[in-house]
Design a protein around this nucleic acid. Structure first.
Lengths: 338, 338
DNA sequence: CTGAAAGCGCTTACAG
DNA sequence: CTGAAAGCGCTTACAG
């Protein structure tokens, strides 16, 4: 692998000049420029970014710490972030916590050692304290899909208004005429969804019975089993609000397996609008979470902090979700809404 | 951010000594060692990996180029690779081609500039020529899920025996008594699956009618629409072999929507065994692809090449898939097989 | 066991 | 517009 000095020697100039034609930071006479370019071509020179990073104190990398890629929510967000980062010539260093805070902390430690330019930490893939400590070293840190009220105004957060998601889903079910509404949620991470549900219910003069609140773990299986438990109750619910689409689809399978019809016997609404939701059986009404928008905003916030090198403003962004009505809550919807 | 020299000054030693206690490459007297460690602690020193990389000519990073994360196949493989890389203190640089060979080439170019220690390129996320050129620079390159017969024995490939997948699926359908077997495949990427299908069929004295071979694009939608086309034929097929689970699930929805029963009227078998397959309606018989094994083998092959620094043996690994029978082909299967 | 020195491949003022 | 020199933060023989 040839170096900048090789190129310089061949072009009969000094390293500084080669660097100048490469970066364009300082004007170079056209003739020399062409000689340098020819030399670069001749030896197949490719700048060593490691050396450049050391000299400049900048690596053009962004660390992305997420809990898992198996969850389509995160894989979609990561995909969009990679795309955007690429257009700015930044590379993504991917780190997965697998739901283990210790592993998240270890990752942050290592990524800091690699001198990444900024961090995005999603879905509580690390402890808030560790994130705050990290930010103390001066590198921009953006939190996203963050469930820790204590963090507000300490670090910038780009988040989804999940409370609104709960409200939208519940309001829709009420409009469909349901009053016996049960819910399957992963608490505490989905507690704001529950807040939304309960505020709308209580405004309608309804209280959520204790046995209508089931604890899931966001998996398909838990949706299935918690729905089975609901189906075993004295008074069956008429509608289900699931904390995410995956649990909603598990619940739908349980309802199908029990020989009940959706939405005639029991209506189901989820949260996320993952791709599979539109093709579920029946197509699932859900609260759409703007994942692409989330990804773009979170990434542009770190990029801005990196490039401007200004003080990183602690400002929270809350992205509003919206309802997508399909056949799991309303029979007469046309095929179009897919 | 304090440096190794800061630590050295505080500990009253030279940089070399600090480096020696850090790396353990050379023994250090216990007393000095402790003074150094105390100094490290005192200033909160964290080694700069960029500088170390430059000095050592090694970055402890592996580039992973895949087409997309939206496809659960790749997100699962990437997740496992990240995990394994982490245990060896390597970091994954993630790059997505989005099915664009130009973008793949650009990524490889940039990653080479970052001096990653090795490359894994999956699912034809880059042109074979570009991969070969890259390997020419001396860094280990492993191909995986690679559909280009011309590549064999030029670069090491870790792959799945998809021809066997086609054979297993077809043999199973024949055993279930079906002879009118249609298929939905994304060609040319899934052409070896077609080879497997056809060899088993012709051994059984069956030829695949031209209108029983439908071209999909691996998406749920294409599974749905191609199945609709099959349902419009004079002579309906009795069984469907879909190139992946996603198309299989699209086909199942089309069959359901047409008022036909699975597997009584039409049996369906897919390929992949994605998580959703077990929870499809009905649970999908499919050929399980060992993604975790694939991930581990591909990664350990690059790691071995990096660490041993031996000549990289061009050796192909072909991982065998296996059949998982569920209710989409056989009614009487118990709940256990989930 | 520890220090002095050179080197990894770039960038960046500073002269000229 | 171009060159000489120092520096980024580490590692690595080589002396002692």
């Amino acid at each position: 692998m040839s170096t900048l000095n090789d190129v310089a020697r061949i072009a009969g100039v000094t390293a500084a000049t080669v660097s100048n034609v490469l970066t364009g930071r300082v004007p170079v006479r056209e003739a020399t420029r062409e000689r340098v370019l020819a030399a670069i071509e001749a030896v197949g020179y490719r700048p060593n970014m490691v050396a450049r990073s050391l000299a400049c104190g900048k690596t053009y990398t962004i660390a992305l710490l997420v809990p898992s890629l198996t969850n389509p929510f995160f894989s979609e967000v990561v995909e969009e972030m990679e795309r955007v980062a690429g257009t700015h010539d930044y590379q993504i260093l991917l780190a997965l916590s697998n739901g283990d805070l210790k592993q998240g902390a270890r990752h942050l430690e290592r990524l800091a050692g690699r001198r990444v330019d900024g961090f995005i930490i999603m879905g509580n893939a690390a402890a808030t304290d560790d994130a705050v400590a990290l930010a103390g070293t001066g590198k921009p840190v953006v939190l996203s899909v963050w469930n820790d009220p204590a963090t507000a105004h300490i670090l910038p957060i780009v988040d989804i208004d999940f409370r609104l998601a709960g409200e939208l889903a519940t309001r829709h079910l009420l409009e469909m005429g349901h009053r016996r509404i049960a819910t399957i949620l992963e608490l505490p991470v989905q507690s704001t969804r529950l807040d939304g549900l309960q505020s709308v219910l209580s405004n309608a003069g309804i209280t959520l019975p204790a046995d209508y609140l089931r604890q899931g773990d966001s998996s398909f299986e838990s949706g299935y089993y918690e729905m089975e438990a609901l189906l075993a109750l004295e008074t069956l619910p008429r509608a289900i609000f699931a904390g995410n689409d995956t649990m909603a689809m598990g619940a739908m399978l349980a309802i199908n397996d029990a020989g009940k019809r959706i939405p005639t016997d029991i209506a189901v609404v989820g949260v996320d609008d993952i791709m599979e939701a539109a093709y579920a059986h029946p197509p699932l009404t859900t609260v759409h979470i703007p994942k692409i928008g989330l990804a773009r905003i979170a990434l542009s916030r770190v990029l801005a902090a990196i490039e401007e090198e200004a003080v990183f403003p602690v400002m929270d962004t809350l992205i509003a979700p919206y309802l997508v009505v399909r056949q799991s809550t309303r029979v007469e919807v046309t095929r179009q809404s897919r």
